[in-house]
Design a protein around this nucleic acid. Structure first.
Ligand SMILES: [Mn+2]
Ligand SMILES: [Mn+2]
Ligand SMILES: [Mn+2]
Ligand SMILES: [Mn+2]
Lengths: 244, 244
DNA sequence: TCCCTTTTTTCGGCATACCTAAATTTACGA
DNA sequence: TCGTAAATTTAGGTATGCCGAAAAAAGGGA
């Protein structure tokens, strides 16, 4: 009989590792739609494959994940709740570090990765209050509300857009701090306007036009940079109807 | 041959447990002058005696403590440095929670006890900066400077003063949150003026006069409360010379 | 000086979360 | 369909830090 014994608090009582695994499972489907495999998790978490096997068994026992041996790993409703709670913590903490302590956006991820497991629910809610309940973190990632609702905006990786496409950057992957520093140096930031010009020949970099009006400039971006930048379409969609 | 291999960073690379043990050894002599015993440490840390024996061996191996079997435990210079670094972290974090996040002074200890192990040196120094380099925490405990210097003020427990003594409260032990709430309710806080009246007969509570001028009032304090309040003498001493 | 109580240490175990190496299962191309 | 390479799981082992029980040391009173 399964261990139906998780009384809802969701967060407390789970180890930092359990929290990180659940968060990693969630993160791997936040901007894509394929369930994550064991070895993908291992890479993301920097552990051996065998460690993932062991921990996934534990997550299943805890009622946080579902997993048929040799197949992909998914979260239960309970696991999803825990993941969103952790993501909320992480992103609020990053926002705090930037807004209140003067961190640069490439410095906050690692600090938040540890703090997210340590602060209390009270801390997080008081922090959210002080910060004015922000809706996205310094990298544009949406911050789930306390009740577990999130709105993940529609967006595509810059590298996957066709020439001619225009939009603005609504998210920048914070996976690589060096890349974030590069982007800062190039004055690319959240909400920058972009237009895709096309690739330079023979597998060359992507040429984009960044900025608007008199600050507009052209720039070559490597694959990694183009994949880290997520662009929302400028064309109106259901949330933004044109009125005559 | 002893493991002389600690390269000075002092802090990083020590586990949270090591940090807490070292801090506990330091704390037990901050306001008294007797070295701590194994079983006292066990009580303070809430672990079994055998756990202390094991960890003390490890502290000795790390060069953080000195210990002859069956005798008291003391810190090395290195251990003392680590302890002060941890105490600085703890007290800055408590100050932050009260000043920036609106915590009450009875809520901060447990949160700081965890956070102190998780935040980075960078975090602590940026926090100290934001807070304006406070010299004492919400309970009056002195905050060591980044260079490891501390000034522990001269003070006595209220319960040990003779009748007629006057002074002001410069420190309130934060060991018992319930006591802190009681003191708040009685409007006793840091810097309150006190005058010792004497004990009620037959081992009764201590009678003190609290406050100054028109807010002056008389109060009965139990032993635990009287021991938690530390009073600095009103009489001038070397740091506070009278000028004609 | 010699018990006998108290304190402290040692010993064997447990839980977590890793690892490497050896099975096992899956999936794809011949 | 078969065989092999890749992905995954299992097995066995390490490091921490905790526990209870048993052994050893200390020390105070008779
Ligand atoms: Mn984390
Ligand atoms: Mn982020
Ligand atoms: Mn602590
Ligand atoms: Mn304090």
């Amino acid at each position: 009989m399964p261990p139906m014994n998780r009384n809802s608090p969701a967060l407390s009582s789970d180890s930092a590792s359990v929290q990180d695994y659940v968060k990693a499972i969630y993160a791997s489907t936040e901007w894509r739609d394929q369930p994550v495999t064991s070895s993908q998790l291992a890479v993301r978490l920097g552990v051996a494959n065998s460690s993932v096997s062991g921990m996934v068994r534990k997550l299943v026992d805890l009622g946080l994940a579902v997993h048929e041996p040799y197949s992909a790993i998914e979260l239960t409703a309970e696991g999803h709740r825990l993941a969103l709670a952790m993501v909320r913590r992480h992103r609020l903490l990053e926002t705090f570090l930037v807004q209140e302590l003067g961190y640069a956006w490439d410095e906050v991820h690692d600090e938040a990765e540890l703090l997210e497991h340590t602060v209390s629910d009270t801390f997080i809610e008081r922090l959210a209050n002080k910060l004015g309940h922000p809706e996205r973190d310094p990298h544009g990632d949406p911050i789930p509300a306390a009740d577990g609702t999130v709105d993940v905006p529609e967006a595509n990786q810059l590298g996957r857009l066709d020439p001619g496409h225009t939009g603005h950057i609504i998210r920048i992957s914070d996976a690589n701090p060096d890349l974030l520093r590069f982007l800062s140096a190039e004055r690319i930031s959240l909400d920058s306007r972009v237009e895709v010009m096309g690739h330079r020949p023979f597998g060359g970099p992507l040429v984009v036009r960044i900025g608007s009006a008199e600050h507009l400039r052209e720039l070559d971006l490597g694959d990694e940079a183009a994949a880290a930048l997520w662009v929302a379409n400028d064309t109106p969609h259901e949330n933004c109807l044109l009125r005559t």
